[in-house]
Computed example of a mutant assay.
Amino acid sequence: MSEPAARVLFMGTPDFAVPALEAVAKGPYDVVAVVTQPDRPQGRRRVLTPSPVKRAAQALSLPLLQPDKVRRDGALTQIAALRPDVLVTAAYGQILPQRLLDIPRLGCINIHASLLPRWRGAAPIHRALLAGDAETGVTLMEMVAALDAGPILSARAVPIELEDNVGSLHDRLAALGAQMLVELLPEYVSGRVKAQPQPDIGVTYAKQLHRDDEWINWANRVAVVHDHIRGLSPWPGAAAKLRGADFKIWAARPIVDSSLGTPELPGTLRLNGRQVLVSCLDGWIELNSLQPAGRKAMTADDWARGVDADGLRFSSLEPTTDKGGAQS
């Protein structure tokens, strides 16, 4: 007689968690419930919108819980009544109390989009790109009450390609996390996995993004400016000001062309045929996609056709505050 399927409780909210949820639901497990954040107002009309994980759970006909605060007694009582063997979390969006972590019989697994202990916290994909990291990856860890500090069950690295932005890297890491979870779960449930403590050296924190993080400093090197732009695309977008108006810069690429000569003052625009170039500390960067305030995103070439842009200069704005914070 075969043993009953392991009872899995899944907690997650954004798109990153969906592949993992779908992978578990297709496996030999009993998904006793999916816990996700409450519907939130979105868009100009502030329409209540379900999370991607809620939509996936409904498509899979899985039981769903949406507590406002998971640490409250009512939510904890509901979860305990489900008698989960294993808790799997992926970007749930709230700090989980020890009382919750103590509920699953076998333990709690978190899927985190970095190579821990680098980039613990809320925005690991953004921060890896913004920092110019050559690689990142996915770590599966056992959960503890401290932020992303639990012992490592599995980790796998992926290179960061020059063409990557947050969107492309997010999708690769989400798929990798789901694959790693499917490979790990049978071993974890059977007790054949031994977690390894995270090293004390190399700990960094991926703080939540704030408005001040968006402003491009054109006085940096081309590589730094490029990392800044792709590290904020497709959300929330790198920002610049031109003649007092706000712009979002969505895509750009470094230019290696000695014939362009010495860079002008940082932020200066130059039209080179159909190329829209901006000077940086050590060279030029080509803008590919941008969005003036109040308008739709467009190619830089289309924008430049209607503007006498040659010789204009983007402002280089420095951050004005140092806000932090992160969630599990």
Rank of each mutant, 00 (worst) to 15 (best):
G27M: 03
K54W: 10
G12V: 01
A309D: 02
T139S: 15
A17R: 06
G273C: 00
P28F: 02
Q208P: 05
L153G: 14
R46V: 01
I125L: 02
K194Q: 12
D212K: 04
E264Q: 15
A251I: 01
D322G: 14
P50E: 10
R270N: 05
L281I: 00
G12A: 02
D85C: 05
D73F: 04
D322Y: 11
L269K: 03
R44D: 03
E214G: 03
L129N: 01
R230G: 06
Q196I: 12
Q42L: 15
A134N: 11
N220P: 00
Q196K: 11
V18W: 08
A304C: 10
D322S: 15
L65A: 02
V193D: 00
G12W: 01
V278G: 06
R172F: 09
T89D: 04
G167H: 08
C280R: 06
R127N: 14
E183G: 13
V70S: 05
A134Q: 12
V53F: 14
V166R: 04
R305T: 07
A149Y: 05
V224D: 15
P186K: 09
L162I: 06
A223Q: 13
L269I: 15
A239Q: 11
V34N: 12
E3Q: 13
K194W: 01
E163M: 01
L184V: 00
E183L: 03
L140T: 12
K248W: 11
W215C: 00
Y188D: 09
G273Y: 02
E163W: 04
L162M: 04
A157R: 15
A6K: 06
P67C: 00
I285F: 12
W235C: 01
Y92A: 12
S51N: 06
A252H: 04
L96F: 08
I216F: 04
A25Q: 09
L277G: 02
S114M: 04
A326T: 10
A326M: 05
A113Y: 12
Q66H: 06
A240I: 04
M298K: 03
R105E: 10
Q275W: 00
L269A: 02
D39S: 12
